[in-house]
Design a protein around this nucleic acid. Structure first.
Lengths: 150, 150
DNA sequence: AATCAAATCTGCAATGTTGCTCATGTCGCA
DNA sequence: TGCGACATGAGCAACATTGCAGATTTGATT
């Protein structure tokens, strides 16, 4: 099937696959030239196949130095679900810490959200008075909030 | 990135970063020479990227000894500072709640950040075991984090 | 003082470089 | 044969770049 939309999708996915961090920056006209198609076709493919709920974020800029940035984001619910299941009364601080790092590196949370979370999480672990049950409940509620608001 | 405007922006930001007080004074033609571009390009970048609502104030003067002064204004810090000062061991839940609402309504935090904060704050107030001192410390550290990451 | 020249920045118009939207058309397949 | 996915181009919106006339400011000259 030499359907142009498929070619474009493949091309972008191949570019993405070469990147470790799941981010590429492309120029629309470059792709259009390479594939030999109308530039608007690129926009079409992006809007139909690189959607948020398929795990992509697309940002762009026009004018000189224009670009299209495509970021592949892990399936959110799975990640959060996984993390939620991992958290129990024996979960160490460093584990939670690395969860936050993971979320940050995969653009599932912002810098500021990460800082906010780290602050709260550190407090929870340092607290002399907070019970382990309370801490677990707090951590889970944070992850749940993120999950529901993504 | 062969985009001159970006270079100029970076240059100015770098100059600003070297200053402790967030103020720089530059000469338009100097920058233009350094970057090798038309002087009016500097004006363009200033008017599009160093705007008031991005937290900058630009003053300038023409003529001999003319200059461009760029000031990075931490307007938002005032709000956070104010809130920080208001928080003590007698601060009620509803007050904190309305602070979060204020931040949200003024677009200083996102929906998700607000949800995150409310979650944590509610936990802190509901906790049977957390001491008042711990709670105050937590609330302040949250606001401080936001302040530093804005 | 009044004037002029030089050094600066301002404002704006003209033009170039991209990406986006939308109306419209095509094509394969159930 | 009708629907939905695919394809295209025109016109538009957003961003960048440049040049030039004009406004300001300083300082030197008359």
């Amino acid at each position: 099937m030499s359907n142009i939309a498929d070619l474009i999708e493949e091309y972008i996915l191949r570019q993405l696959a070469t990147k470790e961090d799941g981010k590429v920056e492309l120029r629309r006209t470059d792709i259009a030239d390479k594939i030999s198609c109308a530039p608007s076709q690129i926009s079409y493919v992006l809007s139909t196949r690189f959607t948020q709920d398929k795990g992509f974020v697309v940002e762009s800029r026009r004018g000189l130095g224009g670009y299209i940035r495509i970021v592949q984001i892990p399936l959110k619910n799975l990640v959060y679900q996984d993390m939620l299941e991992k958290i129990n009364d024996k979960t160490e601080f460093v584990e939670v810490q690395s969860m936050v790092r993971y979320l940050l590196q995969h653009q599932m949370i912002s810098n500021r959200e990460a800082a906010l979370m780290m602050q709260v999480i550190a407090s929870a672990y340092q607290s002399e008075t907070m019970t382990v049950q309370e801490r677990v409940r707090l951590l889970k509620s944070i992850l749940l909030t993120l999950k529901n608001f993504s």
